[in-house]
Every structure is written in C-alpha cells, then in structure tokens.
C-alpha cells in the first residue's frame, strides 16, 4: 500500500466519483464540486503563466511591443460585462475574436473539409493498384455519394434516389456503430487506467 499522501488523495477522489455508481451521494457531490473549482483555478493559472506572462507582461515590461497594451485594453473590456451601463462594450473583444475566427475559418474550411476531402474521394489511377484498395476506394466513393443523397431533401425520393438514400442509411449506421464502439472502448481504457491506479499504485495488489 502506498505511503504517498498524494496517492491517497487521488485514490479517495477516484472512489468518490465511483461512488456515483451506487447512487447520488454527498461524497460524490463534494468531489464533483471540487473538480469544477480545481479545473477553473488551474485554467486561471494556465492562462496567466502560459499566455499573459510570455505574450504580454514580459515583452511590455522590457519595453518591447508596447502596442500589445492596446490588445490588453481591448481584452480588459470583457470586465465591462459586469457593469450594466457599459456592458455593450463587451461586444468589442467578442467582435475581434469572432470576426477573425469566422473570416479565417472560411478559406481553411473550404480547403480542408471540401477540396481535400473531395480529392480523397474521387477515384484516381492510384486507387486501382491492387484489388483490395480498388474495392475500398469504390465503396468510399459510393458511400460518400449515398450519404450526401440521404441528406438531400429537396426532391421526392423516387427511383434511383430512393435506393441511393437507403444505401446512405446503411453507411451511416455502420459509421455510427463504429464510432459508438470506438468511444465506448476509449472510456473503457480510462476505466482500466483508474482501476490500475487503485490496485497497483494505491493498494499494491497487482504489479
């Protein structure tokens, strides 16, 4: 059994969260509220030490990049959210971040999520180098078209459109099933991690 006090704290908190499997209880609620407090406290620390100090305070205190003070002032306008008379000023920093984010997203999203994805879907000579790759590439091509058609509601589903839309459902179901299985296994690996911690690091039952 561990003699490290931090291992004991981590083990008790782990058991506190696991206690929810029995039912909602004060021990779980304590751990849940502690988690919210600690993660937000850590976020403050992180933003201060990793962003504000190296990007703003250090260069400005050395007399460099004094124009960054303007951006610090714009950022500080977030505080006006708590002053009802001036609360509209909070729109300025939001406009900066949201505007740039929306504008920068347009060309990048077109490039990565449409052009590159379409290029990877279109059948080329390189897709037919061996039988397995050729079949897989044809299935992907057909699956993408079928899935898009499944979400096409502008006309009545008749004839070939109906069959393609049904094929789309098959691909979507396979995709959702695979994603579900993958997500469950990711959570299971976290569970194994926590159990390993309790049995090995804390209790020393397994090696």
């Amino acid at each position: 059994m561990s003699t490290d006090i931090w291992v004991w704290i981590a083990a008790i908190l782990t058991l506190g969260i696991f206690s929810f499997l029995y039912k909602d209880n004060p021990f779980y609620r304590f751990c849940e509220h502690l988690f919210v407090g600690i993660t937000n406290g850590y976020a403050i620390t992180f933003y201060w030490h990793r962003i504000l100090v190296p990007s703003l305070i250090k260069p400005v205190s050395q007399g460099e990049k004094l124009y960054l003070l303007i951006f610090a002032f714009i950022g500080a306008l977030y505080f006006t959210r708590f002053i009802p008379r001036l609360s509209w000023l909070v729109r300025i920093p939001i406009a900066f971040v949201l505007g740039y984010g929306a504008g920068a997203a347009i060309p990048r999203t077109i490039e990565t999520s449409i052009i590159e994805q379409a290029k990877a879907t279109i059948l080329q000579r390189s897709n037919f180098l061996n039988l397995f790759d050729a079949i897989s590439s044809i299935i992907i091509f057909f699956g993408v078209i079928a899935t898009i058609i499944y979400f096409f509601f502008s006309t009545e589903r008749k004839g070939i459109l109906k069959h393609l839309a049904y094929s789309g459902i098959i691909f979507i179901m396979l995709g959702f099933g695979a994603s579900f299985g993958y997500t469950v296994m990711a959570r299971i690996s976290l569970l194994i991690g926590r159990l390993t911690f309790l049995l090995r690091d804390w209790l020393g039952i397994i090696k």
């Binding site: 879907t121 898009i148 979507i172």
Partner: peptide
C-alpha cells in the same frame, strides 16, 4: 472504409 464514407458525406 464505411465509417470514412459516412463521416465524409
């Protein structure tokens, strides 16, 4: 393959 096709669509 099928998962990629559905997700891409």
């Amino acid at each position: 393959v099928p998962n990629t096709a559905a997700k891409r669509g």
